[in-house]
Nucleic acid binder design. Structure first.
Lengths: 242, 242
DNA sequence: GCAAAAGTGTTTTACTTACACCCATGT
DNA sequence: ACATGGGTGTAAGTAAAACACTTTTGC
C-alpha cells in the first residue's frame, strides 16, 4: 500500500492535537548594516531558492523551540559576523500569506549595526556572504526588499534620537567621519560647525588625544563615544538629538 | 494495543516533515486603548487559565493559516468593539520560552486606539470584557503587564510625533479635551496658551462652528482633525510635533 | 609653497517658555 | 451677581541656521 504526499499530509493533520493546529513556521530575518568609506552596506547572501535563484537575500533562520526570537537573531549574527554583543533591534513581523514559496512562513525582521572592520566573515554552509551597498539594491528575494526598506526607515529614525551611529564606526573616529555617516545614512547635508557645536554641548564624546594616521593632509583628532556618561544622563532628562 | 500520550507525540513528531519541525504557536495580543473623562483605559478580560485565574488579561488569539498578523489583530478588534477601521500598530513580539503555561506560544503585541463611545462592547463567548484604567493595573496574567507597559511607551512616543491623539477622542472635541488627553497620557502639564498656539500654527484643526452642549459654564468651541490636510502636508516636510 | 582637509565664533532667525486678565454661560 | 471654565497676546530666553577664514600636515 502506498499513499501520496497530500494524503500523508491529511493523515498527519488529523493526528496533530488541537492546540497544534494553529502552529506556523516562524523565522527571523536580519538586516545587518555596516558602514564603510561613506557607504551604507547590508550583509546579503545569494538566494538558492527557486523563483528567486541568484537574487540578494537577507540572512534568516527558523526560531527554534528552545530560543527566543532575540536569541535566534543573535545566533544568526554570531554565525555571520563572529561577534556577540551586537546592536540589535526588532522592527516588525511580515506575514503575507504567500510571501514564501515553501508555504506559510511568518518572519520577524531585525536590524543590527556592526563595524565592518570587526567582522570575520564566515563564508559558511556554502553560502557566500557579502557586503552590498544599500543604494545598489533594487530588488531582493521574497519580500526582503520591503524588509530592508522598513529597517532602513527604522534605522534613520533611531539615528536621530539615540546615539547608535557609533555602532557603525570604529571605536575611535574623527568628527568628520561621524558627520559623513549621518549625511550618508540620512541623505542630508550638515553644517560642520553646527554639527560640532551640538556634539560639544551634548558632551558625550571623549577626546582620546590621538590623531588620524596616514592621511596626506592635516590629521583629525580622534574621539570615542562616552557610553557610561550617556547612560547616566539619559535617565536624567537628557535627550540625544541630532 | 494502546499507546500513551508521550508515545503518541513521538510518533507524530516522527511523521511531521522536516520543514514542519520548527513550527510554533503564534498569537497576537491587542492592547486596546480608550480614553474616557480624563482617564486612559485598556480593554481587559478576566483570565480563565490556571495559574492566572481571575487576573486581568489582554485580548488575543491564534494567527490563522489564512490571515496575516494584522488581519488577526483586526479580527480581534472587530470582535471586541464591533468596529473595523481602527487605528492599529504592531509593537513587538514576546517569545520567552515559558511565557505561557500551555507550552511555547510566541505572541505579537499590537496596540490600537478606539473611541470608547463608538464601541459596542460584545460580552461574547462568556468572557467579560471591561475597560480598566491603565493606572489601576498593577499586574496581569502571563507577561501581559510587560506588553501593556511597552505598548503604553510606544503610544506615548507616537502621541508626540504623529497626530494619533484624535483617534481617542470623539470626532468633534474641544481644545481643552485635547490638551487634557495629552496631559493624562503623557503625564505632563501643558500651558494652555502655548498648546493652542502650537495647534493654530500647525493648522491641522477645522473649526466646526459648533459649541459644547449641556455644560454649566461657557461652552467651548468644537474642532475636528483635518486628516486630508495633514496627509497632504506630511509628505512635504511638515512635521507634527507636540 | 601648495593642495587638502581640520578646526574654530558670531550674528540672525525661529522656536519655546513663562505669565494674567477678560469673556460667555448656567444657576 | 457669582461661579466656572473658555479664550486670548506679549516679552524674554533658548536653540537653530547661516556663514568664511586660519591651521596643520604631506607632497
Amino acid at each position: 500500500m502506498s499513499i501520496n504526499m497530500s494524503e500523508k499530509n491529511e493523515i498527519i493533520k488529523a493526528l496533530i492535537p488541537l492546540e497544534e493546529k494553529h502552529k506556523t513556521n516562524l523565522t527571523v530575518d536580519c538586516v545587518i548594516f555596516g558602514y564603510d568609506q561613506g557607504d551604507l552596506k547590508v550583509l546579503t547572501i545569494e538566494c538558492d531558492m527557486d523563483p528567486f535563484l541568484g537574487m540578494y537575500s537577507l540572512i534568516g533562520d527558523f526560531v527554534k523551540e528552545t530560543e527566543t526570537t532575540n536569541q535566534a537573531a543573535k545566533r544568526i549574527l554570531k554565525f555571520c559576523t563572529g561577534n556577540d554583543d551586537i546592536f540589535l533591534e526588532e522592527v516588525q513581523s511580515f506575514s503575507e500569506i504567500n510571501r514564501h514559496p515553501y508555504g506559510r512562513v511568518i518572519t520577524i525582521a531585525y536590524y543590527s549595526l556592526v563595524q565592518i572592520g570587526k567582522t570575520k566573515m564566515t563564508d559558511n554552509a556554502g553560502k557566500h556572504l557579502q557586503w552590498t551597498s544599500v543604494n545598489n539594491i533594487k530588488e531582493m528575494a521574497f519580500d526582503h526588499k520591503q524588509i530592508l526598506d522598513l529597517c532602513l526607515f527604522s534605522l534613520r529614525r533611531s539615528l536621530r534620537d539615540s546615539p547608535i551611529g557609533f555602532e557603525l564606526l570604529p571605536k575611535k573616529f574623527s568628527l568628520k567621519q561621524l558627520q559623513t555617516l549621518y549625511e550618508v545614512v540620512l541623505d542630508i547635508e550638515l553644517d560642520k560647525r553646527n554639527f560640532r557645536r551640538k556634539l560639544r554641548t551634548m558632551d558625550i564624546l571623549i577626546d582620546v588625544d590621538e590623531l588620524q594616521q596616514e592621511v596626506s593632509h592635516r590629521p583629525a583628532k580622534l574621539y570615542k563615544f562616552n557610553v557610561k556618561y550617556y547612560e547616566s544622563k539619559k535617565y536624567n532628562g537628557f535627550k540625544f538629538d541630532l
